[in-house]
């Protein structure tokens, strides 16, 4: 009984998570050929030991070398990191005041406010990204409003630029930033602020010296929750970004579907994972530390 309980989900994950991942690893080391499927396997297990020896003898990181030789790839990695980093910072700046306002709102509003933050999360991600296309386009609502008020004389080009990508990431990932910060602020004891002010702190001083450090765990969690998925993002750069927006998720997609270069697409995926491992480990540590503090 117990064995069966462990075996069923275990085998499922082995077959549909680990094995596919190993296939990606294997194909990233294969050679491209014009065929279906478009790669030549270098590892042939049917030949037994000789096959494995031949595999290691012929092992080359050709596709990985290819990635370093072409500007496109490392530029795409760097620009994904840059876009993710900047949009995480903006999301924090936008999200913190909202979380702070929620935590200070009257008790009877809190459940409703929380619901209002969670509601967009249940709404289709694709639709939320799409909703900005009508707003940001040249004849879009934002340009119409700005022209009407008289702030600008001619419409701004916003859609299909990196600015639109930043807006898209901030908008769609905002709830992920607000929720952990709110959770941290909500637990805070208000008498600490009163104590700080009694001891001569200004209100702003008390905010920086008491509130911000106490919400640190929420800030860190929120930043990782935005940063990690933003790096591999595909939908936002392909709908809101332009031809010059380079993000690695989009490059992988195009390499696979348009160029049909599976080995290179697989190598792109493996390197993307290697880049992601560092923030993921840091995030895990932060969560663990948090649990120890609370536990």
């Amino acid at each position: 009984m117990r064995r069966l309980l462990i075996a069923i989900p275990y085998l499922w994950l082995l077959a549909l998570f680990l094995v596919p991942f190993l296939i990606v690893l294997k194909i990233s080391l294969s050679d491209v050929v014009l065929a279906i499927p478009p790669y030549a396997p270098t590892l042939d297990l049917s030949e037994g030991w000789a096959g494995i020896k031949a595999f290691f003898a012929a092992l080359d990181f050709e596709n990985y070398w290819f990635l370093t030789s072409d500007d496109l790839y490392w530029k795409a990695y760097l620009s994904s990191l840059q876009i993710a980093l900047i949009s995480t910072a903006i999301t924090l700046l936008v999200g913190y005041p909202i979380a702070y306002g929620m935590a200070r709102a009257p008790q009877e509003w809190q459940a409703t406010l929380l619901l209002l933050v969670i509601l967009p999360f249940w709404t289709s991600f694709l639709i939320r990204v799409y909703s900005w296309m009508g707003i940001l386009s040249t004849e879009g609502i934002l340009n119409q409003v700005l022209l009407f008020i008289g702030i600008i004389d001619e419409p701004l080009t916003l859609l299909n630029t990196n600015t639109a990508v930043y807006i898209g990431i901030v908008y769609t990932y905002l709830p992920f930033m607000i929720l952990p910060i709110y959770a941290a602020l909500e637990k805070m004891d208000d008498s600490l602020l009163e104590a700080a002010e009694d001891l001569g702190c200004s209100r702003i001083g008390a905010f920086w010296l008491v509130t911000v450090p106490l919400s640190r765990s929420g800030i860190v969690a929120g930043c990782f929750l935005v940063f990690i998925p933003a790096i591999g993002e595909f939908v936002i750069p392909s709908l809101l970004g332009g031809s010059r927006t380079l993000m690695i998720g989009k490059v992988l997609w195009e390499e696979f579907f348009n160029n049909r270069d599976w080995p290179v697409a697989s190598a792109v995926a493996i390197i993307l994972l290697l880049i992601l491992i560092i923030p993921i480990i840091l995030f895990q540590r932060n969560q663990q530390k948090q649990r120890e503090v609370e536990g």
Binding site: P20, G249, L252, S266, F283
Partner: peptide, 11 residues
């Protein structure tokens, strides 16, 4: 935490 493009590709 796996990017969707990688999950999709591997499957």
């Amino acid at each position: 935490v796996m990017p969707e493009v990688i999950t999709g590709l591997s499957l």
